[in-house]
């Protein structure tokens, strides 16, 4: 079972934890590892040449910040050279580089997440907390494509009957009229939706919530590990062992606690990639047996 088929709650907590860990633990080694893992996962997700473009964008972003920050920040002990009498320091370059890594890693994790967490899953998660809001959002998700279609219908029809209109003013006039007709349509059709909702008992006391997702043992394990790690990370952030200090001199925190936490987080972040590889291998094995 791929990670993308896991329970939405697991996926949501996994991605939130991965993103948080990147933001909280700014150890450059850890950031590098995290970015690499996210990229590998992204390769599995995309399986196309598009990934090269994304990698190029991350390199560009990191490079840009590595150059930009030394130009605006002149703190730091070790001056490498001067531009217009302003020192370009080693510390500032390191800060720029690690900020670039951090941004890239966060963006990469977010893009992995958006691929896995569809709107459907997010609505499901919301329905756990606010069922009525979830119905509302789901209704809007249904309505938006219909509105777009209806608008195009109206607009095309209007454009057609006013086909002699060429000036920009008249074209805008058509758009405005189509839009006002669309609003009438929206009101009409939401009246139908409301009737249909109440006809099926919407608003009765004690609404339950149905989902097609199942919570399995593997979900429990992942969640348990993440929950177990949380306090450690929290304390390490609290005692600033995770935070890297750039100025006046760059000190990379390499305490035993930080290394341990980084390793554990790395293992967690590897979960989707490892399951993808195992799946792939299993399939090949099965197919070779046939």
């Amino acid at each position: 079972m791929n990670f993308s088929e896991r329970h939405p709650a697991t996926q949501f907590i996994f991605f939130s934890a991965s993103i948080c860990s990147v933001i909280l633990n700014r150890n450059p080694f850890f950031l590098c590892i995290s970015l690499v893992i996210a990229l590998v996962y992204r390769i599995f997700q995309l399986r196309s040449i598009r990934i090269l473009k994304e990698i190029f964008n991350y390199i560009l972003l990191t490079g840009f910040l590595t150059v930009l920050i030394p130009l605006v920040s002149h703190n730091g002990k070790t001056a490498l050279f001067f531009i217009n009498d302003n020192a370009v320091t080693k510390e500032a370059i390191l800060l720029g580089f690690s900020t670039g890594l951090e941004f890239s890693a966060v963006i990469c994790w977010f893009s992995c997440m958006s691929r896995v967490m569809s709107g459907e899953k997010i609505i499901y998660l919301i329905s756990g907390i606010a069922p009525r809001l979830a119905v509302f959002i789901s209704g809007i998700m249904k309505f938006v494509p219909l509105c777009r279609k209806q608008y195009l219908n109206i607009y095309r029809t209007q454009k057609n009957i006013y086909s002699g209109y060429k000036s920009l003013r008249k074209k805008i006039y058509i758009v405005i009229r189509s839009f006002s007709a669309l609003i009438t349509w929206i009101i009409e059709s939401s009246a139908d939706s409301a009737d249909s909702m109440y006809a099926r008992g919407y608003g009765l006391y004690g609404r339950s919530s149905f989902s097609i997702y199942r919570f399995r043992r593997f979900d429990v394990i992942i969640l348990a590990v993440i929950v177990y790690l949380l306090p450690f990370t929290a304390t390490s952030v609290l005692y600033r062992t995770a935070g890297i200090v750039f100025y006046p001199e760059t000190v990379i925190p390499l305490s035993a606690a930080n290394i341990l936490i980084s390793i554990l987080w790395t293992i967690i972040m590897l979960i989707p990639v490892v399951t993808e590889i195992c799946e792939e291998y299993k399939w090949k094995l099965l197919r070779s047996k046939i």
Binding site: V135, S138, M141, S193, S196, M197, R200, Y202, L204, G206
Partner: peptide, 26 residues
């Protein structure tokens, strides 16, 4: 009107809608 009376965005959610309102179990 086939469009107006559909409430939700997914087919399975639409099917479940009435039973959810009645508070049936999963």
């Amino acid at each position: 009107n086939p469009d107006g009376q559909i409430v939700t965005d997914k087919v399975y959610r639409e099917l479940a809608f009435g039973l959810e309102n009645l508070g049936e179990s999963d």
